[in-house]
Amino acid sequence: MSALVTLDKVTFHASERQILDEISLSLKAGEITSLIGPNGAGKTTLVNLILGLNQPTSGKVKRQRGLRIGYMPQKLTLNAGLPLSVDRFLALTGAHRQARKQSLTMAGASQLINHSMHGLSGGETQRVLLARALLAKPQLLVLDEPAQGVDISGEEELYARISELRNQLGCAVLVVSHDLHWVMAQTDSVICLNRHICCHGHPQSISNDPGYLTLFGEQKTPVLAPYVHEHDHDHSMHGDVVEGGCQHD
């Protein structure tokens, strides 16, 4: 499978402080990647490098030529003096009305088309941002903490929608989350970040995990899956790598 974006030993400094250290990874067409890590791990910085919003201090970011990226930012802080309807917000991309309607339907927000952007709830804003990301006809969908500000059922619904969209559109998906133990069940690979890549793996299979069943009950298709970290190092208070056995999960 071809890689849409490849990072080769990417390091990023912000005013003398090292934010990311020698990150190498690749995002493959059609695959779902979950990027997890604690707050301050550099997740958003890494996303900005992948999107091309920032340039690495050293190392290389290679993007496939003409790659179409749909980006759903973490939050939207609209100025109170900027009145926008949902439809006008989507029209900022230059998309036609038919395309706007279609992507709103795909994001499950068709009823919001004439609402003001200022009156939306957290979950509704999320769906409108998803609709805007879909307008790019993305080969890669980048979602920065999409589950932030929505409750657990909202999170499940969102993840179910994203995996459905992946199947429908065949796009690759990069999902960022600060939840260290539960990731989207359909995730093909998990990257755990704490300024460097701590571990890299696959989520556990759900069928035999009693913890999931007690938490969410039996569902036909599970949306979340637990992720077991396999670290071969430890972190000091400052996040530096300390040699020694794995102490945390």
Partner: peptide, 17 residues
């Protein structure tokens, strides 16, 4: 005009687009 409003709405999003 449309581009200027888009940047005022969300700069990063406009750039990715």
């Amino acid at each position: 005009w449309n581009a200027l409003v888009a940047i005022a709405t969300h700069r990063d999003l406009a750039q990715v687009e």
